[in-house]
Computed example of a mutant assay.
Amino acid sequence: MSNDARFEDAGDHPLYLSAADADDLRVLSSLTQDAVFPIGEMTYRPRERRFALLLNRFRWEDRLAAERRGRAFERVQSVLAFDDVAAVRSQGIDRGDTDTVLSLLALAFEPGEDGAGTVTLTLAGDGAIALEVDCVNATLRDVTRPYVAPSGKAPDHG
C-alpha cells in the first residue's frame, strides 16, 4: 500500500511539475496564485509556439511548515511555460510598460475542439492573458533557491 504525497515531503526541493489537462492546470494554478512578475518577464516565441513567464512565486506548499516552525514565509523564482501556443491576447495591461508588476490570481482552461482551447491567466486588477493552445502543455519549474518573502506575510484574500 502506498501513501499519497504530502506538502511536507517536498522540503526545500525545487518544484518541477507539468500539466497535460485541466485538472493538472488547477494544481499549477494553486501553486502560482499570488505570484508576481514584471511585464518585461513575459515572453511569447511564435516560431517555437512557447509562452513563458518568470514569476516570483509564493511557496504555498511550504506555508503550513513555516507557520508551525515560526519561520518566515518564502517566495521562489519560477518559470511558468506553455507550449503548443498558437496565439496570445491580453486585456487590461499595457505590454509596453515593462516595469509594471502584475499579480497572477489563477490559471484556467476552457476546452474547444479536439483538445484545443484557451488557457486564461487571470491577473489582479481585471487584467487577463489568453493563450490559444492546441492542448494543455504547461510546466512550472523553480529556478532559484527560496528567499524570505519581502512582505513577511502570506497573501490573504479574506
Rank of each mutant, 00 (worst) to 15 (best):
A66V: 05
T120D: 06
T120L: 06
E41V: 01
A52W: 09
E61K: 01
I39S: 07
S30W: 04
R50C: 13
A66C: 15
Q33M: 08
G117D: 06
A81N: 05
V85D: 03
R71L: 09
E67G: 05
D99Y: 09
V79C: 11
E41P: 00
S103N: 11
V119L: 03
D62F: 15
E48P: 00
F37W: 01
F109N: 02
A86W: 01
S30A: 11
V27A: 06
P46E: 03
E41K: 04
D34H: 08
F37I: 06
A66K: 08
A72L: 09
R45I: 11
D99W: 10
E113Y: 06
V119D: 09
G70D: 12
L55F: 08
P111Y: 12
L31T: 05
A87D: 04
F37D: 02
F109S: 04
T43G: 02
D84H: 12
G115C: 02
D34R: 05
E113R: 08
F37N: 00
E67P: 10
E61T: 07
R75Q: 15
N56T: 10
L102M: 12
S103I: 05
L80P: 13
Q33Y: 00
G117Y: 07
L104E: 03
R59D: 06
T32K: 02
R50K: 15
P46T: 05
A108R: 04
P38Q: 01
A116Y: 01
D62E: 15
L31Q: 05
L64S: 14
E113A: 13
T100R: 14
L102I: 02
L107N: 01
D84C: 07
L28G: 10
G112D: 09
F51C: 14
A108G: 03
R47F: 13
L105G: 07
D99Q: 11
R75G: 10
F58T: 10
I39Y: 01
A108D: 13
E74S: 10
